[in-house]
Design a protein around this nucleic acid. Sequence first.
DNA 1: TGCCCGTGTGGCACCGAGTGTCAATCAGGC
DNA 2: GCCTGATTGACACTCGGTGCCACACGGGCA
Lengths: 197, 197
Amino acid sequence: MPDDDGLWKRSRRAVYAEITRVAMELFLDQGFEETTIDQIASTAGISRRSFFRYFGTKEDIVLGDLVDQGSLAREALEAIPLSVPPWQALQDALWQVDQRTDQAVMLEVAKMMYGTPSLRARSIEKHLRWQEQLVPNIRLRLGADPGDASDPAADAIVATAITCLDVAGQIWVRGDGKDDLKELYRRAVDSVRSPGT
Amino acid sequence: MPDDDGLWKRSRRAVYAEITRVAMELFLDQGFEETTIDQIASTAGISRRSFFRYFGTKEDIVLGDLVDQGSLAREALEAIPLSVPPWQALQDALWQVDQRTDQAVMLEVAKMMYGTPSLRARSIEKHLRWQEQLVPNIRLRLGADPGDASDPAADAIVATAITCLDVAGQIWVRGDGKDDLKELYRRAVDSVRSPGT
DNA sequence: TGCCCGTGTGGCACCGAGTGTCAATCAGGC
DNA sequence: GCCTGATTGACACTCGGTGCCACACGGGCA
């Protein structure tokens, strides 16, 4: 089923991958902001205009998957029995998503992300979109009144979980990838929820 | 002491205020993204080029104070005795900042902020700057080892507090300002720290 | 009063991101 | 071999933002 739907879609996927490859190489080599779209396009052998038919913005090259990963997280979350309490369920769902690619590359990309304001902003924006996807399920787990739109509980819990993931990433980058990301996340959540503060 | 340091600075402040006034009127009237900088400049009676000598970006007209408010929050936090535990101290410090302007205007601005991606992104970016300012003091309150850069506790707590403020604002806007913002914040933090989840 | 200096100002050219339009191209079905 | 529809490249345009330069104006000084 995956990749035999005609030459069109296949070549489109190929171009897509090629742009990503070329762009990432340029980004890591000379920096995100220093790389212009014209440069990416000409290096990838397409026109400037065509580039924008594959990616809406330059940031999307780096963060394109993030929104889809939100859907993955939602599916993962919905697959976890409702008897599992919110925090544990969120932790399981988020981990299922975040760990896939090569650690070394991931560190480089993360460094770039945390060091480039426009990228950081977009990534946070996309993480916010996760919130919408995950909140309904957490409401169920909380047994909250689904009609009460002014109950901040589920939103707060989801947003905090995502924030902890972000903080963990920050510390991870700061420590040059020496710490374990999962462990950092666990400690972040623990310290937020620790009663002794 | 405030405003008698010569004609230059006084007139500069006047122009600054005038731009803000004019721009806000246009924003609330026809939307943020639909308002162009040329329009703001010509309405305020200055050149396009001069506009950029007062504001680095269009977003800064709306969010200009936010970074300064971070410093205010830091000062407020540092004025609270170290014996007060982190969460309470953060709550007090953040409240001292956020409640000042007219509620009706604030609601309009908040609606615009949560409804305009680029504004939302920038506001998050600026809130991140708050983090850097508040973390050191929270580390003190936690009695954390100041040399241990890989301890995520203080960062997580500060980030979560700010996130809860953000979530509260979101719900507040969603409910058209009917709820009490402070109350929403309190409930957000409570639900995050509630042990029964 | 007349001069100089520093700062704010406007105008201009320029860059990069992103969009609308249109004609040419090319794969695939008939 | 031809028609159709999606893809492409080229061009022009908008908008946000920056660098540069010449000019005007306020304030201090002789």
